[in-house]
Every structure is written in C-alpha cells, then in structure tokens.
C-alpha cells in the first residue's frame, strides 16, 4: 500500500530538518489580555506588589502561556493537502519563568511523523520538538506537540 501513504519520501525528509523559528516580545499588555482571556485573577500575574513577595520577585506569565499559538508551540507548518486540523496534545517542561519585557525565541523541529486511518479518513500525526529561550540564552522550557492533519 506504499502508494496510499500520506508520508511520502519527501515528507519523511522533513523529520529533524524542518524548523520554524519565531521571536516574541513578551509585552505586559499581552500578559493582561492572556490572563483576562482565561479568567485567571491570580495576583502573581497582575499585582506587582504581591508578586514582589513571591519566589520570582515580580510579575511573571502563567506557565500556560506556552499553550498559546503565538508562542509557536505547534511546530513547523507542513505544506500538505490536508486542510483540517486537530490538536493531538502537548507536553512541556518548565525551567525559567517568563517575565514582562522578556524576548523569547522559539525553535520548533519536526520530530516524527505517523499516520492512522481514522473514522474521518487518513490522519497525519505531526510531532514537533520545541525549545523556548529568553534573551539571556536561558532555556525557559522545552516541549513536544502533536498536530493532527486530516
């Protein structure tokens, strides 16, 4: 069934090679909008006086910020004729907090490709390895994301 596979030789060559790099300025307004969208009133993300007394000594972004699409956590976009998208899940390991004013660089690399016959047709699972670094070169977090195209 070689002719039936979604993972062509050309696509397979993207594993470990296809990369996407983005730089994001972590503005305070973006933090406000983000926690407002979640409906998260935790003063750690908004109250400078309160946050000063915490372990980080100031306001930080909630770790959930890495789930936001604008943080580039979905990996490189592959140009394939499958228009529909599902989020298959993600995992993260957090090392450093993200503070307002930080400049984060995210690099995503295709880690693996798998396919499966689903009830809605053939599904391609694109697994990406992601790394976020701040302006000091510190690794803020690493992660792995699965995007399903079908």
């Amino acid at each position: 069934m070689a002719g039936d596979t979604l993972i062509t030789d050309e696509l397979r060559k993207t594993i470990g090679v296809a990369k996407q790099s983005t730089t994001i300025e972590m503005e305070k307004g973006m933090l406000r909008q983000f926690v407002d969208a979640i409906g998260d009133p935790n003063p750690l993300w908004s109250d400078e006086e309160h946050a000063k007394k915490s372990q980080y000594g100031g306001i930080t972004f909630p770790p959930g910020i890495l789930a936001a699409s604008l943080m580039g956590g979905s990996g490189p976009w592959l140009d394939i004729p499958l228009q529909r998208i599902l989020d298959g899940g993600s995992e993260w390991e957090f090392f450093e907090p993200i503070r307002p004013g930080d400049v984060i660089t995210v690099v995503g690399t295709i880690g693996d490709l798998r396919e499966r016959q689903g009830s809605v047709g053939k599904m391609l699972f694109i697994i990406s390895d992601i790394e976020w670094k701040n302006q000091k070169g510190e690794v803020v977090a690493t992660g792995r994301a699965t995007l399903i195209r079908y």
Partner: peptide, 30 residues
C-alpha cells in the same frame, strides 16, 4: 480550543500550589 483547556488546567494547578509552588512538567492529550 484544546489549548484553552490546558490553560484552565494550569490555572487550577497554580491556584492550588500557591505563590511558592512551581509547575515543573505538564502533559495533556485531547
């Protein structure tokens, strides 16, 4: 959005662990 659900789960965790707790690892499937 699946990612909004993850943000909600992080909110649950950070509410629970307080100012001095840390989320070290997180994984979520849909």
């Amino acid at each position: 959005h699946g990612r909004l659900k993850i943000a909600f789960l992080v909110q649950m965790l950070t509410d629970w662990i307080g100012d001095e707790g840390k989320v070290k690892k997180l994984a979520c499937q849909h």
